[in-house]
Amino acid sequence: KRVEVKPYVLDDQMCDECQGARCGGKFAPFFCANVTCLQYYCEFCWANIHSRAGREFHKPLVK
């Protein structure tokens, strides 16, 4: 058996893009583990950032 640990998915993290400004101060539910991102995102910022060319295939890690 093999266990994969993702220590970078933490609870209670603010969106790295808007710092809570676009999501009413809620914590960010998404983390993008792609090396070009490596950031936490609220729903609004995830949709906005990941609609751009080259990022549309990134998969979010959801808390």
Rank of each mutant, 00 (worst) to 15 (best):
V9I: 11
D16G: 15
E56N: 08
F57W: 13
V5L: 07
F31C: 02
K26L: 07
F27M: 11
H58L: 01
D12N: 11
G20Y: 02
K59H: 06
V5Q: 14
F30S: 06
N34S: 09
C45F: 00
Y40Q: 06
V5K: 08
H58F: 00
R22W: 04
V9W: 08
V35A: 13
V3I: 10
E43V: 05
L10I: 10
K63R: 08
A33K: 07
W46K: 00
E17F: 03
Q13Y: 06
C23G: 10
M14E: 10
Q13D: 04
M14T: 14
P60N: 10
F44K: 10
F31H: 02
C45L: 00
G25N: 11
S51E: 14
A28G: 04
D11Q: 11
R52K: 15
R22H: 14
L10P: 11
D16M: 09
P7G: 07
R52C: 09
G24D: 13
H58D: 01
V5W: 05
Y8W: 09
K1A: 04
R2V: 06
G20R: 02
W46N: 04
P60Y: 03
I49T: 07
C42H: 01
E4P: 07
C23Q: 05
F57V: 14
K6N: 12
P29I: 05
C45R: 00
T36F: 04
V9R: 07
A21H: 05
C23N: 08
R22Q: 14
C32L: 00
Q19W: 05
E17W: 05
G20D: 09
A53H: 13
L38N: 15
P7K: 13
C42N: 01
C23D: 13
R52A: 12
C32T: 01
M14K: 14
V35D: 09
D12P: 08
E43N: 10
H58E: 03
C23L: 05
K59G: 05
A28R: 05
Y40E: 01
H50W: 01
M14H: 04
V5H: 10
A47S: 10
E43G: 07
L38E: 14
A21I: 06
F27A: 14
F57Y: 11
K1G: 06
G25M: 08
G24W: 05
C15N: 02
N34P: 00
F30P: 02
Q39M: 14
N48P: 07
A33G: 10
C15V: 02
C45W: 00
C37E: 01
R55T: 07
A53G: 13
C45A: 01
S51C: 13
S51Q: 14
L61H: 10
V3T: 15
R55K: 14
F27C: 13
P60Q: 13
R55Q: 10
E17N: 08
D12H: 13
E43L: 03
M14R: 07
L61A: 14
L38A: 13
Q39N: 08
R55H: 08
Y8M: 04
V62A: 06
C18F: 00
F27W: 07
C23P: 05
F44C: 13
C42L: 00
G25C: 04
V5T: 12
V5G: 15
C42P: 00
L61G: 14
C45H: 01
F27K: 14
K63G: 14
H50R: 01
G54W: 05
V3C: 00
K63S: 11
F31R: 04
F57E: 15
F57C: 14
Q19L: 14
V5P: 15
P60S: 05
E4D: 08
L10W: 13
Y8V: 09
N34Y: 08
C45E: 00
F31K: 04
C32W: 00
R22I: 05
D12T: 07
P60D: 05
R22M: 11
V35I: 09
E43P: 06
A33W: 05
Q39H: 14
D16C: 13
Y8D: 15
F44H: 09
R55F: 13
P60W: 01
D12M: 06
Q39R: 15
R55Y: 15
F27Y: 06
C45I: 00
Y40K: 06
I49R: 12
A53E: 14
Q19N: 03
D11A: 08
K26T: 10
A53V: 12
E17D: 07
K63Y: 03
S51G: 13
V9Q: 14
A53D: 12
P7S: 10
T36C: 06
P60R: 10
Q13N: 08
W46D: 01
